[in-house]
Design a protein around this nucleic acid. Structure first.
Lengths: 147, 147
DNA sequence: TACAAAACTAACGTTAACGTAAGTTGTATA
DNA sequence: TATACAACTTACGTTAACGTTAGTTTTGTA
């Protein structure tokens, strides 16, 4: 069992461009469960935690989601992972598995619908700004101005 | 000159689903300049103001922009309108017009770039969630499970 | 082992975008 | 004209997502 590399608080904050307070806060509100500690209660992060943190930051920046929404998304993902794991290890009845899977699928679908709606609106807005830009460019190059 | 219809505070809040405080606040921070008033200092809104407010709300919801950013976008749009208007009415030298147009074009382009970046990231995220969903669906229908 | 640098906890501060309450005027209608 | 309801201004309150001390332990290094 080869131990994965460990990172200190400073490692993480410098690498991800965030502050210690942010990590403290995410832990406070339950976004980062069970962070490992040294004997002296200093935090240690491993690769898995790093990926989780990066995932959170990405969801924040790209989706513009609140930490509360991110919590829900992460939970949906974890349920899915749990289901996948137990699919191979634990014995389940067909019905149990189907129920769990359906729940996870439903959550994923609602996330995707959310994203799709957002993209559609962005698309429409992008187009309207594009048209404005076109008009401005036509004005500049003195082809027949509209209006 | 046929006067455009006027709307009261209640008209606007009910129609747009916002509160009076929001309109007061937008005025406070300069997002809604020169709102008309009755003799008794009650606010009156016309179609143009309504459209401006709707535009602001759309930018907020779709772009997730802060009111500060929205202020900048509105300013860019107004500059462009002003340029278009003055193109026909006021006399300008070629250089003056080109300078103003270039500034407006630059602002519009930066907005569009912003939108495009956001869409690209959303696209990537959408795809990753789509793949997760596919895996879950494969699990459910018991075709060869991956991993 | 001694000490500077790093991390810890606890707690109050800050900003954006409004919410809410209070007391005062305006306005529409009987 | 009386009155109920709408809108006004002023000002303090609230929530999310951290920022910022402050005072106290840990830890890596000389």
């Amino acid at each position: 069992m080869t131990a994965s590399p460990k990172y200190t608080m400073e490692d993480v904050t410098e690498r991800l461009g965030i502050t210690a307070r942010t990590l403290h806060y995410y832990e406070e509100i339950g976004l980062l469960p069970a962070v490992m500690r040294t004997d002296g209660r200093h935090r240690i992060y491993d690769e898995i935690m790093l990926e989780r943190i990066e995932h959170i930051l990405k969801l924040k920046r790209v989706l513009g989601a609140s930490l509360q929404e991110i919590r829900d998304i992460l939970q949906a993902e974890e349920e899915l992972e749990h289901i996948k794991a137990s699919y191979y290890k634990e014995p389940h009845t067909e019905e149990e598995r189907d129920l769990l899977l359906d729940q996870a699928i439903e959550r994923l679908q609602s996330i995707i619908i959310h994203i799709d709606e957002k993209m559609a609106k962005l698309q429409a807005m992008r187009q309207s700004f594009g048209e404005r830009l076109d008009r401005a460019n036509r004005l500049k190059h003195r082809s027949l101005p509209d209006r």
